[in-house]
């Protein structure tokens, strides 16, 4: 079981690039890339809030929980 980040889908839906999001949320592109590719071990509430504000969505839209099959 794991938490996945659905940034790809959100960015596609809003026609936004990762670079644009990085500028809006004031997080480095490298860190956002780590988050997008699922390599991050943890996420700060402040980061989640900034992403939600920038993409006008809820935390549940950014994160998903996957059970082991």
């Amino acid at each position: 079981m794991r938490i996945t980040v659905k940034l790809d889908d959100l960015l596609y839906a809003r026609r936004m690039t990762l670079t644009e999001l990085a500028e809006k949320v004031d997080i480095t592109l490298a860190n956002l890339s780590i988050l997008k590719t699922g390599k991050a071990k943890a996420m700060r509430f402040s980061t989640l809030a900034a992403i939600c504000a920038a993409l006008d969505c809820q935390p549940g839209d950014v994160l998903a929980f996957e059970k082991d099959s």
């Binding site: 997080i27 860190n31 956002l32 780590i34 988050l35 390599k39 991050a40 071990k41 943890a42 996420m43 700060r44 980061t47």
Partner: peptide
């Protein structure tokens, strides 16, 4: 060092 390693993976 374990705490730092954990923090390094935090975005």
């Amino acid at each position: 060092s374990e705490m730092r390693a954990e923090l390094e993976g935090t975005v």
